[in-house]
Design a protein around this nucleic acid. Structure first.
Lengths: 234, 234
DNA sequence: CGAACAATTGATCCTCATCAAACCTTGTGG
DNA sequence: CCACAAGGTTTGATGAGGATCAATTGTTCG
């Protein structure tokens, strides 16, 4: 379905745009849809578009010289990705964008963004806020990876996911739909370790683990673990 | 010594500024000097200034809720730090800035930057380039921390440091002046491990390790290690 | 029912952090 | 000029935390 200008208001970067600006963006934007596991772009491709995710979920990944893959972040609806190119001329994407599930996005040409920013400070500020937010998230995750144990990192990952896309279940519980493998990739560990941690948490009645899903029964306990305040210490 | 407008040309963000803009910045900027180990600002302080380092070296660090410290990056001469505040109103610094050695910086008030950016797209673009560069560096370091072994990370750290501040010695060798402890903090490991790795490298004649310094005899071998192409594999 | 995929669990191994002890280098004061 | 203190460095012993591998057990679906 076509994207209406008003939809773009939900994108933080375009919050303060005029109606005319939004119309301009939708008119010149191209809608692209990709199936599950397909890519919007690959790391190293020339960065010619900036994307706004209109439906689905996308993961940003990077591969090292030795071929190992790392998950940098996941993009949800109405979030912007692939923004580096809007800034640097002749840049390449520093990461790949792969659809978690079948997804659509509005692709906006760099030239257009570049041109619009010349006369619209709100746009630059919006993008800069996006970037500083992202910097802070990466810094936090770097710190976590450097200093925290897996259990703690898994707890944190789950809380992040709950905030971004948790589904309420009965009695204050929250449900997430993920395979152990996916959770492991996002937390930077293996599916085995995730499975073991879940078993332990299930023993403590903090979660209820099922096939491709987890129900969080006591979110507060998860917060405790994420903060590093395990009961053994208290 | 006072900072001259022309000096600011060496700052990437101000590359395309007019002479008048540079004069404005130096006139309204405040020069701050701090001694070794002192702080320009702490994580959590209200972000009221953006800094340009005019002399010395500064490390950006973050502490976790459990009190462990992590090194995020080091700032060299003519680089900008503490830029988050220029963007977000009422923000706080997400990290602390501590002087590696006695250092000076030009502090520019947020309000001024904010105001100038309204009418000078080059400034926004400069800042955005700074940010995207930083994002890419953090992404790379995150990936490294997640996928690489310590030896590899130490090699990488040293190459980065060589590029930023290596001193040529005779016969194509390069020297770095760091304690094992400092190297360890930057690479995210312990001084013991750094020491062990150096011993091994010395055995292979890749480096020559001294008190508070390392001489890199065969930089190319270090690159090999950093790329994960250890001889055992080939 | 069987195939494909997700999850669990146990056994094993490797990498590093941690702790302890000794050693080396440099600078300072008697 | 020596002695000694302080800080940097090395090396060994030990242990914890997870990754990896292999085998088995659900679960879903055609």
């Amino acid at each position: 379905m076509p994207i209406k200008p008003a939809d773009l208001r939900r994108v933080h970067v375009f919050e303060k745009a005029t109606d005319d600006d939004l119309k301009l963006l939708t008119q010149h934007g191209i809608e692209r849809s990709v199936e599950e596991d397909e890519f919007f772009f690959f790391q190293g491709d020339p960065a010619t578009y900036l994307y706004v995710l209109t439906s689905g979920r996308v993961k940003m990944t990077q591969v090292s010289t030795t071929g190992q893959q790392v998950n940098l972040r996941t993009i949800n609806q109405w979030q912007v990705f692939g923004a580096v190119g809007a800034v640097r001329e002749r840049a390449t994407y520093p990461a790949s964008a792969q659809a978690f599930e079948s997804s659509s996005a509005l692709a906006i040409e760099n030239g257009l963004m570049h041109e619009m920013m010349q006369t619209r400070p709100y746009l630059s500020f919006g993008l800069m806020q996006l970037m500083t937010g992202y910097i802070q998230e990466m810094q936090a995750r770097y710190r976590e990876l450097a200093t925290e144990k897996v259990e703690q990192r898994i707890a944190r990952t789950m809380l992040r996911l709950v905030a971004a896309m948790g589904v309420r279940a009965e009695k204050g519980a929250v449900e997430l739909t993920f395979t152990r493998q996916q959770l492991a990739e996002i937390s930077g560990t293996t599916l085995f370790t995730v499975s073991r941690v879940f078993s332990e948490w299930e023993r403590q009645a903090i979660v209820e683990a099922g096939r491709e899903k987890v129900r969080i029964l006591r979110p507060h306990d998860l917060v405790q673990i994420a903060e590093g305040l395990n009961k053994k210490d208290g």
